[in-house]
């Protein structure tokens, strides 16, 4: 019987885990341990609902409601000096509970602090675009749409950014295999030569360890290369490697090692 592979997460898995292995946790500190973060959190929680908050590896993490995101970021930008949105994207939790986790990484240059705002949305829901607050979210949201299929409301140009416009599938979903699906495998052939060329060009060779013993054209006969269609007998002459014909070339002098000067120290 074939081993069961889950369909909702086709990424590489650890092939062996100790039965009693308990993964340790990255330590989380309470927000009150840092006065600057504590003040920020207080200001935010006075106006918005904060579900959870802690400090992890020098970053404050705050979980909020999805509907508040625009207002929270606006408040942070205008009142709390978080002037830059350095990064935003999503994490795919579809296999676990059908949600996406969205994170916004904020930087305050005056306070030298970084805060991460997070929330969960259901699969199929859209987030509110913060493109009006931070222009950089324009591209980040497009990238998120491209990679996860999460749309942003009120975005001026909600189209794919990294993949071609006519691409199918969202590559960073856990259900999408690393090597791509059927559509991805034939994308360029279909587009350039048409479907009927598939047979002539053949499927992609993705096995990195593949060596064809009878292949007389590729690397299997390194040093003993033979032209296409030759019958391989097994006692071929080694290939002579040279960049010039034996008898010399018309009007081209050959490099002579003995009469050349070799410099030891390149920087002289």
């Amino acid at each position: 019987m074939r081993a069961y592979t889950p369909k909702d997460d086709v990424q590489a898995k650890a092939y062996y885990t100790d039965r009693f292995y308990v993964a340790p946790q990255v330590p989380k500190q309470d927000v009150s341990t840092d006065p600057v973060f504590a003040a920020d959190l207080e200001a935010i929680s006075a106006k918005f609902e904060v579900k959870e908050s802690f400090i992890q590896v020098e970053n404050m993490v705050i979980y909020i409601n999805a509907k508040d995101i625009y207002a929270v970021l606006e408040f942070m930008r205008d009142s709390l000096e978080y002037t830059q949105l350095t990064e935003m994207s999503a994490i795919d939790w579809l296999a676990k509970d059908d949600t996406f986790e969205i994170f916004y990484q904020m930087l305050s240059m005056n306070k030298r602090k970084r805060t991460r705002i997070k929330f969960f949305i259901k699969n199929g829901d859209a987030v509110d675009s913060v493109e009006k607050l931070f222009r950089c979210a324009d591209w980040s949201e497009r990238e998120m749409f491209d990679m996860f299929g999460i749309e942003a409301n009120n975005h001026p140009f909600m189209k794919r950014i990294l993949m071609p416009y006519d691409w199918q599938g969202n590559p960073l979903l856990k259900t999408y295999p690393l090597e791509g699906d059927e559509f991805a495998a034939w994308y360029e052939i279909d587009k350039i030569y048409g479907k009927e060329a598939r047979e002539a060009i053949g499927p992609e060779i993705r096995d990195t360890a593949r060596v064809d013993r009878y292949d007389s054209e590729r690397f299997a006969r390194l040093g003993y290369e033979q032209p296409k269609g030759t019958k391989i007998t097994g006692n071929e002459e080694p290939t002579v490697q040279s960049y010039q014909e034996e008898g010399g070339v018309f009007m081209v002098t050959k490099f002579d090692k003995d009469t050349s000067k070799i410099i030891d120290d390149p920087q002289r």
């Binding site: 993964a23 946790q25 992890q56």
Partner: peptide, 20 residues
């Protein structure tokens, strides 16, 4: 098998020649 870091999240910024 590879190392197994603890469960958690980290964002680390460094100053590369191009920026953060």
């Amino acid at each position: 098998q590879g190392m197994r870091p603890p469960v958690g999240e980290v964002y680390v910024a460094t100053e590369s020649p191009k920026g953060e």
